[in-house]
Design a protein around this nucleic acid. Structure first.
Length: 824
RNA sequence: GCCGAAGUGGCGGAAUUGGCAGACGCAGCAGACUCAAAAUCUGCCGUUGGCAACAACGUGCCGGUUCAAGUCCGGCCUUCGGCACCA
């Protein structure tokens, strides 16, 4: 047989698979379905190794499940709206659509080179009218349900991108895309009411045992649920009430000041007829001008200013000073916080700095605190209350409940749950996105574009300039329109939607991609959905994965789908690393998939990536490791070539009894491998160990390279080896299958089962331990009983030697494993 | 600070239920083939001592449970990731 030439055979089979349309999938109620999904890429222009890893994992699963008999949905598409296309327009004058579609073509070409089993007829591109039409339709659905609204708020603004950002897109105070510092701006913007779903998004994480713990934890942290008490303090001089929220009601008798956020609405009122008004306003101005980074950095001093106004602690009637501070967040809770220096470290520091009173309300059980000796607040949630009226002497837990009861009974407070999660800011002042289908009319106000008029198309007559104005606003043909209600002159909303909206439902469109009446047919969604296995990078742990869950829940509530979680199982692959760092242009450690495929072939690239590390862990790229993978495929090629005549002449129903002992051993290795690979791929997602056991099988076959091998066994090994290799290295498996077995595709074969009788050992090697240390090994018949086994072990020369003159205390026998003799 | 994951040879990693630590691969060393090299095939390959048989040590650290611990329990350390002036 000629030498292995991946370049030739890969092209050949890719062409045949395409012509044969072999990956086309249809709904079929009679067969169990399996939906394997890899996160669709942004069309940046080229695949990187992260994509290769992602798609290799997905392709193994899709091909394996197909061979297992499932009706597999394995689609691919492009998350095609977004900033880079627009930047290309600004910098190079290329139309965003042209740039995007050219990139998509190139990436599809690269994906095809990988030999992936996608049903391309289901492809979804979010920037196409037939897709964003339904994105807009879904926006209208949210709007009608009261889940989409416009409001003026202090929002995140990125100067470089010229648009606002969702909270989830601000990473450490910086823009997720361009890394520049994010500012706060007061703007009127569109939001989706994800907070309505905060509780169920949190609670339903329990329904996802197939998700990695770390992803669930991240979402939990992000949603940030806390339980506490909201109550009001009267401001007698102003005839006002200030609500505050606390998770430590037990400390309420220790309130000595009240801290307002600089943005708190009451601040303005406090300044009326206030001699310190100018000073207070200047302070607020200073605080508000700080960026989030400055405001929240660890070193930033707690600062405040006394307003001269006081309020009353409703629990004990104490007079409490009202301060405006820089450390209270306007957006969380009520924007006002009770100040208890003895129970909160921030309040402690603030009180110490400004000489505010401190009242101790909680004493630990094991030692006594004295205010004058304390250097920090006592923040433990254990102890006994002091200085707390009728609650004095009560245990912390009991008092917490008692104080909340008191507030509720007297009507000045109630138990409350708070979330860190904020509503999702979805409008963007950008062109390359789905236009928000809303019309503003002077007379009628805000109106949805009628469903029959969707999509609201992106205009072509726009200007791309770096500036503050959204490019859509420069198109008269777009902005000027008629009001759908009164027919009078009106103008369109010029913001587009966050691309994360587009990607929040794409997995549903794959199920019914050509539907022109609806986003998807309910029956199809309920057949295919939810996704059985989703595969992607950890970077979407919060953003995309939280948004998709939210969308799915809304669609479930609307009756459009029957399931309330989109992704039953989630696999988060690790990054591809080289020389200890993530591959990046700036570090100069990028390995191009296209070059690797050109040099070694896609099968080698896939095999290396699957073998080098378990899927969840970061993968260290190693050029020598790639050589190793290539070497293995060559070994497979050579050894099957060596036995070609035997494989072809061998019969399926050969006489297993006639095998030699060595041949029996090979057959056992084969069936052990089938068992192992089936478990590793099907249950554990341990592709690295699946590959290693296939290597062991090939090594076992090599033991026969200078010996005769039973033709029937040669055939059995080759047939099953190729079937098991097929999901990992589809081209070489298909080529060898074709050469050895002629007609039919290896990918349409049934996944092999193992012969349980073949893996039974006649003899096993057991270990002799003396006091838990291995001292000898012996091979014994596998079916020997415990007493017999002990006898054999005790009679070993080593056992006799080491137990001579000592007392045997105990003998432990583990069948087929070991005998441990305990001596004194 | 809170939450989560991880820590095993020179390297990537394996050990699935408490039962031989280091499978498989990479690198290295040796042999065969070759005029030679590459490729290929075969063997060796945790550390220390020993010619060897063998012994001692060894899965981040300290302690515990057990005949037996990488695995279980208690207490730490380090690294990575998430959240964080969230009251």
């Amino acid at each position: 047989m000629e030498r292995y030439s991946p370049q030739e055979i890969e092209k050949k089979w890719q062409k045949k698979w395409k012509e044969g349309n072999v990956y086309r999938t249809e709904m079929d109620e009679k067969r169990p379905k399996y939906y394997a999904l890899e996160m669709f890429p942004y069309p940046s222009g080229n695949l990187h190794m992260g994509h290769v890893r992602n798609y290799s994992i997905g392709d193994v699963l899709a091909r394996y499940k197909t061979m297992e008999g499932y009706n597999v949905l394995h689609p691919m598409g492009f998350d095609a709206f977004g900033m880079p296309a627009e930047n290309a327009a600004i910098q190079h004058g290329v139309k965003p659509s042209t740039w995007t579609y050219e990139n998509i073509e190139n990436m599809k070409r690269q994906q095809d080179q990988m030999g992936l089993s996608y049903d391309w007829e289901r492809e979804v591109e979010t920037c196409r009218e037939d897709y964003y039409r339904w994105t807009q339709w879904l926006f209208e659905l949210f709007y009608k349900k009261g889940l989409a609204y416009k409001k003026k708020a202090s929002v995140n603004w990125c100067d470089t991108c010229g648009t606002v950002l969702a909270n989830e897109q601000v990473i450490d105070g910086k823009c997720w895309r361009c890394d520049s510092e994010v500012k706060k701006k007061d703007l009127s913007q569109w939001f989706l009411k994800i907070t309505d779903y905060a509780d169920v998004l949190l609670k339903d994480l329990e329904k996802l045992p197939g998700w990695p713990e770390r992803v669930k934890t991240m979402q939990e942290n992000w949603i940030g649920r806390s339980e506490g008490l909201e109550f009001t303090l009267d401001v007698p001089s102003m005839n006002e009430k200030i609500p505050v929220y606390t998770t430590r009601p037990d400390t309420a008798y220790g309130i000595t000041f009240l801290a307002l956020a600089a943005e708190h609405p009451l601040v303005e009122k406090i300044c009326e007829n206030n001699p310190k008004a100018a000073e207070i306003k200047a302070f607020c101005e200073k605080v508000r001008s700080q960026s989030d980074i400055e405001r929240t950095s660890g070193e930033s001093e707690k600062e405040g200013i006394f307003t001269g106004v006081t309020c009353v602690n409703p629990f004990n009637g104490n007079e409490v000073q009202i301060w405006v501070t820089n450390y209270v967040l306007a957006e969380y809770g009520t924007g006002a916080v009770m100040g208890v220096p003895s129970g909160d470290q921030r309040d402690w520091m603030f009180a110490k700095k400004y000489g505010i009173d401190i009242i101790l309300t909680l004493q630990p059980k094991d030692h006594e605190l004295k205010l004058e000796e304390m250097t920090a607040a006592y923040v433990e949630k254990e102890g006994v209350l002091v200085n707390s009226g009728k609650f004095t002497g009560m245990d912390f837990h009991e008092a917490t409940q008692g104080i909340m009861d008191e507030a509720e009974e007297k009507g000045f407070g109630k138990r409350m749950v708070n979330y860190r999660l904020r509503d999702w800011l979805i409008s963007r002042q950008r062109y390359w996105g789905a236009p928000i289908p809303v019309i503003h009319c002077e007379k009628c106000g805000e109106t949805l574009v009628p469903e029959s008029e969707l999509p609201v198309r992106l205009p072509e007559d726009v200007e791309f300039k770096q500036g503050t104005l959204s490019p859509l606003a420069t198109s008269k043909s777009f902005t000027e329109c008629k009001c759908p209600k009164c027919g009078g002159p009106a103008h369109r909303e010029t913001d587009t939607m966050d691309t994360f909206i587009c990607s929040s439902w794409y997995y549903l469109r794959y199920m019914d991609p050509h539907n022109t009446e609806k986003p998807f047919e309910r029956e199809k969604a309920n057949y295919w959905g939810p996704v059985d296995q989703y595969i992607g990078g950890i970077e979407h742990a919060i953003l995309h994965l939280l948004y998709s869950r939210f969308f799915t829940k809304v669609l479930k509530d609307e009756g459009l789908v029957d399931f309330d979680e989109p992704f039953t199982n989630l696999l988060t692959q690790g990054m591809v690393i080289k020389d200890g760092a993530k591959m990046s242009k700036s570090k100069g450690n990028v390995v191009s998939p296209e070059e690797i495929i050109a040099k070694y072939g896609a099968d080698t690239a896939r095999l290396f990536i699957l073998f080098a590390a378990p899927v969840e862990r970061d993968l260290d790229w190693s050029d020598q490791g790639v050589e190793g993978a290539y070497r293995f495929l060559n070994r497979v090629w050579r050894i099957l070539g060596h036995f070609e005549e035997d494989i072809k002449s061998g019969k399926a129903g050969y006489d297993v009894q006639a095998l030699t002992k060595e041949e029996h051993d090979l057959r056992r290795v084969l069936h052990v491998t089938i068992k192992k690979v089936t478990e590793d791929v099907g249950e554990r997602f341990m592709f690295n160990t699946a590959v290693s056991s296939l290597m062991e099988l090939v090594n076992a076959l090599y033991a026969f390279q200078d010996k005769a091998l039973n033709a029937g066994l040669a055939r059995e090994v080759a047939e099953n080896l190729l079937k098991m290799l097929a999901p990992f290295v589809p081209h070489i498996a298909e080529e060898l299958w074709n050469r050895m077995f002629g007609e039919g595709s290896v990918h349409q074969q049934k996944w092999p089962g193992y012969d349980a009788s073949a893996i039974v050992l006649d003899e096993v090697e057991i270990v002799l331990q003396i006091n838990g240390k291995v001292r000898d090994k012996v091979t014994i018949p596998a079916d020997i009983d415990r007493a017999e086994m002990e006898k054999v072990a005790r009679e070993l020369p080593r056992a006799k030697e080491l137990t001579a003159g000592k007392t045997i205390v105990k003998v432990i026998c583990v069948p087929k494993k070991l005998v441990n003799i305990v001596v004194k």
